[in-house]
Design a protein around this nucleic acid. Structure first.
Length: 103
DNA sequence: AAACTGACTAATA
DNA sequence: CTATTAGCCAGTT
C-alpha cells in the first residue's frame, strides 16, 4: 500500500548528504520495526523523479543491496561517491563513518 | 487459505 | 573474513 510506503519515504528524505542509513534503521524510525524488507520493496517501486535519496539506504553490512541489477548498483555507488561517501574495496562502505545518526 | 516473493537482519558456524 | 539459516511481514498469486 503506497500510503504505508510514504512513511518510509519521509524518513529517507531526511538522510543528509554524505550520510547513509540502513533498511532496518529506516523501518525503525518510521515506527515500523522488523519491516526492513518493505523499505527495500517501497524504494523499488519508487517512481523516477521522486525527491527521495534512495541511494543513501544500504543494508546492515554497509553494502549496496542489489543482488541482481549490477548496473543499478553501479549507479548507486556513483551517486554516493558524488557525495564523498568512500567505498572500502568493491562494495562496502564504513558504517562507522558514514551512518546517519538520527536525532 | 496457502504458498511464494523480496533493494532485509541477526545469530551462528 | 564468508556462508548458512531462521525469522521477518505486507503484497501477490
Amino acid at each position: 500500500m503506497r500510503s504505508l510506503y510514504r512513511r518510509f519515504y519521509d524518513i529517507v528524505r531526511k538522510i543528509p548528504r554524505g550520510r547513509v542509513a540502513t533498511y532496518g534503521q529506516v523501518a525503525r524510525l518510521a515506527g515500523m520495526p522488523r519491516h526492513a524488507r518493505h523499505v527495500g520493496y517501497a524504494l523499488a517501486m519508487l517512481p523516477d523523479g521522486e525527491a527521495v535519496p534512495w541511494h543513501r539506504v544500504l543494508n546492515s553490512k554497509g553494502e549496496i543491496s542489489f543482488r541482481d541489477h549490477p548496473d543499478s548498483a553501479r549507479h548507486q555507488r556513483a551517486l554516493l561517491e558524488r557525495e564523498r561517501v568512500v567505498f572500502r574495496g568493491e562494495k562496502r562502505i564504513s558504517l562507522k563513518r558514514f551512518q546517519w545518526k538520527s536525532e
